[in-house]
Amino acid sequence: MQRKIEDITTELMRLSKRERLEIIRFLLFIDNRSLDSDDIDSAWQAEIEDRVHAVDQGKAIGIDYDEAMC
């Protein structure tokens, strides 16, 4: 049986502030984890591929690690 948003909201209002905050943290965590993680991973993957292609094509050159860290 599917619960209505109104029923859930009413039940949430009966919880203590601490319990509601725990639920909020959980909801924000699962929402951000599922969406942002995939977007970030694919953005980094594309960036890595672009950098490798640039080096392979001679459009970018690397520098020594010690020199870069100075």
Rank of each mutant, 00 (worst) to 15 (best):
M1E: 11
Q2F: 05
Q2W: 02
R3K: 09
R3Y: 05
R3L: 14
R3G: 00
K4A: 07
K4G: 08
E6W: 00
E6V: 09
E6M: 06
E6Y: 01
I8M: 13
I8L: 15
T9G: 08
E11G: 02
L12Q: 03
L12A: 06
L12T: 01
M13K: 15
R14L: 02
R14Y: 01
S16L: 08
S16Q: 04
K17E: 11
K17S: 06
K17G: 05
R18H: 04
E19Y: 03
R20T: 01
R20M: 03
L21Q: 12
E22P: 00
E22F: 13
E22Q: 14
I23V: 07
I24V: 15
I24L: 15
I24Q: 09
R25E: 09
F26P: 02
F26S: 06
L28V: 09
F29G: 03
F29T: 09
F29R: 15
F29M: 07
D31S: 13
D31W: 05
D31F: 08
D31Y: 08
N32A: 11
N32C: 03
N32T: 06
R33L: 15
S34M: 09
L35K: 15
D36Q: 14
S37C: 06
D38K: 15
D38A: 15
D39V: 15
D39I: 15
I40H: 04
S42Q: 14
A43S: 13
A43N: 10
A43K: 13
W44E: 10
W44H: 10
W44S: 04
Q45F: 08
Q45D: 10
A46Y: 08
A46W: 03
A46I: 05
E47Y: 12
E49Y: 02
E49L: 03
E49N: 07
D50V: 01
D50H: 09
R51I: 13
R51K: 14
V52W: 01
V52S: 02
H53V: 10
H53S: 13
H53G: 00
A54F: 01
A54T: 01
A54N: 09
A54K: 10
V55D: 01
D56F: 04
D56E: 12
Q57A: 14
Q57Y: 07
G58R: 00
G58E: 02
G58A: 04
G58F: 02
K59L: 05
K59H: 07
K59R: 14
A60G: 01
A60E: 11
A60V: 00
I61F: 05
I61Q: 09
G62L: 15
G62V: 11
I63D: 03
I63T: 10
I63K: 11
I63P: 02
D64I: 01
Y65V: 12
D66C: 05
E67C: 00
A68T: 02
